[in-house]
Amino acid sequence: MRNTATIAWKEIKGYFTSPVAYVVALMFVALTGYFFVRSVDSILTGANFPEASLRGLMRQISIFILPWLAPVLTMRLLAEEQKIGTIELLLTSPVRDWEVVLGKFIASMTFFLAALAMTLWYVLMLEWRGNPEMGPLLSGYLGIILYGGAAMSVGLLASSLTSNQIVAAVTSLGLLVLLTFLEVGADQVTGVASTIVGQLGMTTHFDDFVRGVVDTSNVVYYLSLMAVFLFLTVRSLETRRWR
């Protein structure tokens, strides 16, 4: 566990000294701010908030922000180690492969959570002008954190497959767009196929959360997605070692 923490901490410090991270944080704030204002735009007219919730915002983070945020945050984590060769020192130190992967995952999640914390400002505004229900707010945050975790693990797998950050980013962007729009795709087919495709989609399992429902099957879905992609990442590192 200490190794995991060491690796996570190194990457977290890496984020905060990298200009890319600041640009990303800025874009996150700008976009969420825009989405928030749009969802409650009566704030401009001074009327009471018509809908005192973050439903819209959470949906938009999942569909319009995470598919690029996760690739940008994860592309460097393993690809760069392979490009500059530091992976050789990392894997020849007495660290387990999964500790490396978990450490990097935790780092990307920490950055995401820090960015997400900035949306708490919007919660304050809701409290100030309206009377939001606490339940859907909390479940919405739980949902987006799980969704983000799944997205980061997809990005990490892509980063382990190449030594080129751009290739990693494009790969995970592709995968995430696919997983995001499977639900739309499910409407194009019928019967069992439709159900299966729909169930695999990342958005399918998200709506319950923003409506205030924490369904175990949805939690399990995101946790499994994370487990599968992190496991594949560990395997991908191992095959690099064993090639």
Binding site: R2, T6, T17, S18, I84, T86, E88, L90, P94
Partner: peptide, 27 residues
């Protein structure tokens, strides 16, 4: 203790920071 042929280093870390990191992952 291993020095690979390519001398792989994290270029964005300081000498001290890098050594501290390597020490930590060596337990």
């Amino acid at each position: 203790g291993y020095l690979p042929e390519t001398v792989p280093l994290y270029l964005d870390m300081t000498v001290e920071g890098y050594l501290a990191f390597m020490g930590a992952i060596r337990g």
